[in-house]
Simulated scan of single mutants.
Amino acid sequence: MAHDLSDKEIVKMEIEQLKKEVKTERMVVSKTAKEIVEWIEANAAEDPLLKGVPEDKNPFKEKGGCTIT
């Protein structure tokens, strides 16, 4: 896509992106990391990657075996 644009158009796109990024609210990493850890710990009981999926509710469970004759 960038090959089809002139240098002026590319610079214009970069400026627009920078304008969007300047408006993004910044947060202190130490506070944000603490909040993320708290959220993970609070929701760990419902996390299927940590506790697994019950066999009867697993949509990817194989329905039957394969027999080679």
Score class of each variant (00 low, 15 high):
residue 2 A to S: 12
residue 2 A to K: 13
residue 3 H to P: 11
residue 4 D to P: 01
residue 4 D to K: 09
residue 5 L to D: 02
residue 6 S to I: 00
residue 7 D to V: 08
residue 9 E to G: 05
residue 9 E to M: 06
residue 9 E to D: 13
residue 10 I to Y: 06
residue 11 V to M: 11
residue 12 K to N: 09
residue 12 K to E: 15
residue 12 K to W: 07
residue 12 K to M: 07
residue 12 K to P: 00
residue 12 K to H: 11
residue 13 M to T: 05
residue 13 M to P: 03
residue 14 E to D: 12
residue 15 I to V: 15
residue 16 E to W: 01
residue 16 E to V: 01
residue 17 Q to R: 15
residue 19 K to F: 09
residue 19 K to M: 11
residue 21 E to H: 07
residue 22 V to H: 06
residue 22 V to Y: 10
residue 25 E to Q: 10
residue 25 E to D: 09
residue 28 V to N: 11
residue 30 S to D: 10
residue 31 K to E: 15
residue 31 K to Q: 12
residue 32 T to N: 07
residue 33 A to R: 14
residue 35 E to S: 04
residue 35 E to Q: 08
residue 36 I to N: 02
residue 36 I to L: 13
residue 37 V to S: 03
residue 38 E to R: 00
residue 42 A to M: 00
residue 42 A to T: 01
residue 42 A to I: 00
residue 44 A to L: 06
residue 45 A to C: 08
residue 46 E to N: 15
residue 48 P to M: 00
residue 50 L to K: 07
residue 51 K to D: 04
residue 51 K to W: 06
residue 53 V to C: 05
residue 54 P to V: 01
residue 54 P to T: 03
residue 56 D to S: 07
residue 57 K to F: 04
residue 57 K to P: 00
residue 61 K to Q: 03
residue 61 K to P: 00
residue 64 G to W: 05
residue 64 G to D: 14
residue 66 C to W: 15
residue 66 C to T: 15
residue 66 C to H: 14
residue 67 T to V: 15
residue 69 T to S: 11
